[in-house]
Write a protein that binds this DNA or RNA. Structure first.
Lengths: 228, 228
DNA sequence: TAGATTGTTAATCGATTAACAATC
DNA sequence: TAGATTGTTAATCGATTAACAATC
């Protein structure tokens, strides 16, 4: 389904840059810019032109010598590569704050990412509706999955429940999990897991804050010494 | 402030693994496990023992030959490295769903990450309170920052407003931004930005879904051919 | 002491960057 | 045609893994 017809595995470094290319190309498209060279794009995105060309050429030759890339064409090609040319059904497991935030995020739908149901254990939530999406008792999940196609399960449960439910999802045939729980899920190899570990992300920010402070201190110290 | 007293810059690959080490060590601590070797930890975390030792030795020699690592000691050392041995004041810019979800996430406070205020433009939200945290008019942000120490600003605004507000934050002296907005902020070098691009994360998951489907198709095809 | 396991150097692997012939 | 810019190969850089002497 992806445009790469060769067999070589694309590195995850490359894949992680694709959405960013897609975003920048979308912006260019909105600004009615029809063509762009790797050099121009490189200046905008703050990566090397070489990397852009290397990345794109993993999937095919989308450009033209002496011209560059046609923005709309490249945008649509990356769209296809990312699999954004079809509709996905998503379910949210965990109707807490993050779960609700995701259901309320209307941009997903515009991209063909449709949240079809939310599941929770909390009786106060069950039966409620968020933006027209019903919250079901988590007990009903087996029934739901057997009657509805589910492409992605979004897991926003607390640590304690996440593993068990993830295993259940895997056994029910769910093949992709977007995991917001603060655990590393251990699942069969054919289940794809993409983690969003918010706390980890914040911690790396804190690390960098202190790193900067250390350097500043060192600089001040050096300055101090030099000036004497 | 970090424990690395040498000058060599720690690579971001290493830094991004630190929270994971911290998490696993915390789990071990809770299970009353007092010592662990890089080999044992490697099996648990699914990375090489060599990498663990290399990573840790960027910050110092925390282990002991023939023994391994003392779990509690290493846990606390990583805690210090990550800067989790002090309190941080955070503000949330954007009182929407994600902003509210973050305020409601009680685990932050347990780690010394205190959200002191939320800012929004929506008059319906201004004046409200989430878990005791007040939502202010975003107009009040200058006043707030000059009267209160702000270590991190969490930016959860829509794309359109994010850049402008980020610049304002930078000019008001905020030195770290945890950015949930779907834009790459262009800020002075001394402002640290950590991005959480949720849509990008989901897109890489979608890519992998289709990648698998492609491979499966190829396998089926090969099987088909072989069987004939 | 013998066994275990670190810290660290060396080897390998992979990803990024540079260079340039091909070609629009 | 001349200039621009790609696609791609080669060179470099950095990160991961392997190996092993040091030592608890």
């Amino acid at each position: 389904m992806n445009s790469n017809n060769s067999d070589k595995k694309i590195s995850s470094a490359v894949i992680s840059r694709l959405p960013r290319y897609y975003r920048y190309l979308g912006d260019l498209l909105e600004s009615d810019i029809t063509r762009i060279s790797s050099k121009e794009l490189s200046a905008k995105m703050n990566i090397t032109a070489s990397q852009i060309r290397q990345d794109l050429n993993n999937f095919g030759g989308f450009g033209q010598q002496g011209y560059g890339y046609n923005v709309e064409y490249l945008y649509n090609e990356i769209k296809k590569i990312l699999g954004l040319d079809r509709v996905y059904n998503l379910i949210v497991i965990g109707g807490g704050n993050i779960g609700q935030a995701l259901v309320n995020y209307t941009n997903f739908e515009r991209r063909g990412l449709v949240i079809t149901a939310v599941f929770d254990i909390n009786p106060r939530l069950i039966g409620m509706t968020i933006r027209g999406v019903k919250i079901y008792d988590i007990e009903k999940i087996e029934e739901f999955i057997s009657n509805n196609k589910v492409d992605v399960a979004i897991l926003t449960l607390p640590r304690s429940q996440a593993c068990k439910v993830a295993n259940q999802l895997a056994s029910l045939g769910v093949k992709a999990i977007w995991n917001f729980s603060h655990v590393d899920l251990k699942l069969p190899e054919d289940v794809i897991v993409e983690n969003v570990h918010l706390t980890d992300s914040l911690m790396t920010l804190l690390y960098k804050i202190n790193e900067v402070e250390t350097h500043e201190t060192e600089e001040e110290y050096n300055e101090h010494n030099t000036n004497q």
